[in-house]
Amino acid sequence: MSVSQIFPKSLPVSSFFLAFRGISTTSSVCKNRKCGVPKVTPFRTHPLTYEEAQPPSKIYVTKGWLSWNTSNLYEEKRHAETTFEDLIIRKFMFGTWHGILASEVVIKRRHNMIVLAFLASMEHALQRQVYFLQGYTEELLTNWFKCPVKVELSAVSSKNDVIFKKI
């Protein structure tokens, strides 16, 4: 909607300024705002995994979901609980497996079981550390969520192995 449409030429100039200080009732375009799409660095040095390289609009097209559950299906329950539990799990995993996580955590729920699948980088971790953290994670999360939690991780030798592209 242009200015001439709102104000005919006969109106005084003061009303022109008044109107633009007021509340805009037209819907905003937001064409410069985006989330989940990382910015390109000057020398294209920032590494991205496959998960990060695909924008959120490509979920279910080129990449799958990170949370697999039935709560968001039609007429199902526990939307809020499941989402909040997923949030806690991701926070916990980020802190507990700090420096070892080479990917996002895939949270899969089967019946009452929660399966956590992710890639662990063995660059700075010993095998026994990983085994300990696995048991630690399973034990704590099982007690908190009152349901069996299983950690099904795959190891990669370095975080460089999961680099998909550099931007």
Binding site: K63, W68, D161
Partner: peptide, 27 residues
């Protein structure tokens, strides 16, 4: 598993099973 757009992505090769999270997602 995966999709590449150009040779800048994963050196122009579809990602293999090694360290591929996309294969770990679906049942």
């Amino acid at each position: 598993q995966g999709r590449i757009l150009s040779s800048s992505e994963n050196e122009g090769i579809v990602p293999s099973k090694y360290g591929n999270l996309e294969l770990m997602k679906p049942p």
